[in-house]
Design a protein around this nucleic acid. Structure first.
Lengths: 190, 190
DNA sequence: GGGTGACCGTTCGGGACCGAATTGTACGGC
DNA sequence: GCCGTACAATTCGGTCCCGAACGGTCACCC
């Protein structure tokens, strides 16, 4: 995806299209670039460091979470990894069959399941993470440490905004109307 | 996904885990936050503005590209939208059956296919984009215009780095070895 | 002890997504 | 005209991903 330059070009075209309606250029550019960058980085890492280990991005993130935080309830892992519980079930199963992760029931609370790394998983992460981190450093290689800090901070504020007020905002936008059903997914039994 | 705070915490845990090996903290934080932010924003928009229009994020991006750039070859649309040609085929078909997009063959080159908006698609975008843009502005509402500009610029440089030198970098990392096959996807006929 | 919620993980429907294989058109050289 | 290469879009296998529905467990109350 080139057309990086195109974002500025696009703004003009949008304004033409809308005939005078104000476009929030800067805001549009941040959001667009955020997604381009995230996708590019993810793809690069999947096709380099993660490929040799036969891991997808998500699988790696899950491993990483369990590695860093130690044995954790699946609910927490999903939250921390930024995926839904349902997705985690599948990913965890894959990792389990590959012998990288262990799934055990909680001793006292029968509802909970706990994930932890196997010895093999531990070894893999010890080897893989430095490579991964090295590559993270490479993709942002054009930025100074200070720029990294500032950018990380800015992005954090975006996340906070959405997480803290997103729900409320969505309700306000609906203005009492029933939320439209999702287009895909399991249908009501009715 | 909370645990925003956890990123800084995580850095310490990582260093413990690795026992002295240097971790590029700032770089790690940028990459992590980039993905968190992108996911959060995407989800918010899919569950608010896009939901009422029954569009997924990708479908909207494709519409947007065709809207702004006018009738375009599918190849260019895919590139501009940041998805593979294969994915576009499916998304375009969906949009076509919903009457928002038209697919026509190229007049002189029979290999090409061209996408353009229908009248209905045009109308939809004229109504939808301002709402979308408003919401983009909201998610980055905690940032000043200047911060938006700076961040957009920084992110653009990340994209450029990966796009300009990613291929080369991946080859260098392989160091002559055959690239591991992708884990999923169509198998060789053999 | 029999509700009755609240909460957890899993199942499952449907779309998104990549990328190799495939199919089809164009165009050069002969 | 015919072949081979180049390049277009589509097909398709396999995974990811969300979120509603589901089934199991817990905790609290009567």
């Amino acid at each position: 995806m080139p057309g990086q330059r195109s974002i500025t070009e696009a703004e003009k075209l949008v304004e033409e299209k809308l005939g005078g309606i104000r476009v929030r250029r800067e805001q549009m550019a941040v959001v667009a670039n955020m997604h381009r960058a995230a996708a590019a980085v993810r793809q690069h890492l999947e096709n380099s460091v993660l490929r040799e280990a036969e891991l997808t991005w998500t699988a790696f993130v899950v491993l990483w979470v369990v590695w860093i935080w130690g044995a954790s309830e699946t609910r927490r892992v999903a939250e921390e990894a930024g995926i839904s519980k349902g997705t985690l079930t599948g990913v965890a199963r894959t990792l389990q069959t590959r012998g990288l992760v262990r799934r055990s029931g909680h001793p006292t609370d029968g509802r909970l399941a706990v994930l932890s790394l196997t010895e093999e998983g531990e070894t893999l992460m010890r080897r893989l993470f430095p490579e991964f981190n090295e590559e993270e450093a490479w993709v942002v290689g054009q930025l100074s440490d200070e720029e990294c800090r500032r950018t990380a901070d800015v992005l954090r504020r975006v996340v906070l905004q959405v997480e803290a007020h997103g729900e409320e905002r969505r309700l306000a936008l609906l203005d009492g109307a029933a939320p439209a059903p999702r287009r895909s997914g399991r249908r009501p039994r009715s």
